[in-house]
Design a protein around this nucleic acid. Structure first.
Lengths: 239, 239
DNA sequence: CCCTTTAATAGTCACAGCGACTATTAAAGG
DNA sequence: CCTTTAATAGTCGCTGTGACTATTAAAGGG
């Protein structure tokens, strides 16, 4: 950033794009909006918008998150910067640099049009195809990041309501990773990690389903997982 | 990014900032440039510059890397996008959004002025203080990222020349992490990880120092480390 | 009311990985 | 030739984890 005044510089439009994830009916869902105009009119896209003069990309992302989900309080939601996409031709009209974020929601409020009056809809991740711009790439990157962060962070609780059972937490992993996890082993691992979850003191139990009712837990104070909870290796992810 | 044409948008200047690391004399060094003008005239800063109209942030970062280090071929160097800094007041003159990158160099060519004619210097990481703008924050974030990635990636070889000994590789970890590692255990772990390093077939050995000469290795084809090489926990990094 | 089903919870066993440690080998240098 | 230095070889024991079995506590149907 030296030599600042010695070069002319091109002004860029700066936007944020959000990959907003939630779990619904045992499947990973992402919030998409339908574009109303060219380019890509009628195509689905990630929600997002311009960064305003007086706000950071993080502020813009949280503002857009509230507008698009209709949630009144998005202050506690997990929002994470992914990376910035800046290919010169990523928008056919003009030079747009976009800062991508991932957001995780515990439950999915029904989607509705945001302030942009654009149609918004929760879509199963596997059905999100043919997105506008490079949003397909952004969405795939976001999913990879979320899956990876489950291994070494307590991110999974961000998909859960304030109080949850270990079964629900395990389903987060199973859904995002697409693998089954051994129930007792998962329980042992989670409870052995200090600060991951803490038991709700009262003899709180959740009923409503079949089977033995499970104890309730809250997210703990830890953010990192040491040692990590490695996902089962289908074969050799390494190499 | 929907509702594209419905809002006026503020044009931003977009720059890249680089945290270029290398190992010198057993210490982590970072490439800094001295600012020649206000603001922060005379202060040290991370190298960087404006993204040009026809290039992506990645292209701009690699171009700047070549200009600032004086290296003729930077195509093989490890360059990694960190995150984007976009606080409205991060530059007192105007609205500048900066995409930060980390770069890793095997050996340190003597620093010289880049094309900007600014003075450039390799500085021990611990001596890099009072940087211009928010570059201190960016540098700290970059160091954190590099340290963390050593755990679960083969990034360490990016600090090494094409052929290196296991002792040199171990010193990378020890220098970046600031901890001593058990020699035999490190060797066992590295050699047990397929694709991390591969032996140079010839009875190649490195002489020049004291002691038994070590075998030479090259970086393997793996990029990820499974299971990871966790850094010794001084106590509880988790929680 | 019993019996099946479902899911949480408790517990066992064996192996892999790793920290800590000791021993040996192969060079340089005085 | 002996000391120093560093690479390499190998051992021991603990911890974490995968695989697996058993028990408990509810719902639901006959």
């Amino acid at each position: 950033m030296d030599g600042y005044d010695r070069y002319a510089f091109e002004p860029f439009a700066v936007t944020v794009d959000l990959a907003v994830f939630t779990l619904r009916a045992g499947a990973l869902h992402v919030l998409l909006v339908e574009r109303g105009q060219e380019p890509y009119a009628g195509r689905w896209a990630l929600p997002g918008g311009f960064v305003r003069p007086d706000e950071s990309a993080e502020s813009a992302a949280r503002r857009e998150l509230g507008e698009e989900t209709g949630l009144t309080d998005v202050s506690g939601l997990h929002l994470e910067q992914l990376r910035t996409y800046s290919e010169p031709d990523r928008d056919p009209r003009m030079r747009v640099v976009s800062v991508a974020f991932a957001a995780l929601l515990p439950d999915a409020p029904e989607a509705h049009g945001g302030s942009d009056a654009a149609q918004a809809r929760w879509t199963p991740y596997d059905c999100a195809r043919e997105l506008a711009f490079d949003h397909g790439r952004i969405l795939a990157d976001a999913r990879d990041r979320v899956g990876a962060k489950l291994e070494y962070s307590c991110l999974a609780t961000a998909f859960c309501p304030p109080e949850f059972t270990l079964g629900e937490l395990r389903q987060v992993y199973e859904t995002v990773w697409g693998t089954a996890l051994d129930r007792p082993n998962f329980r042992r691992k989670v409870l052995a990690t200090p600060g991951f979850v803490e038991a709700v003191p009262g003899a709180a139990r959740l009923t409503g389903g079949r089977g033995k009712p499970a104890s309730l837990y809250r997210a703990g104070t830890a953010t990192a997982l040491h040692p990590p909870l490695l996902r089962p290796t289908p074969e050799g992810r390494p190499a």
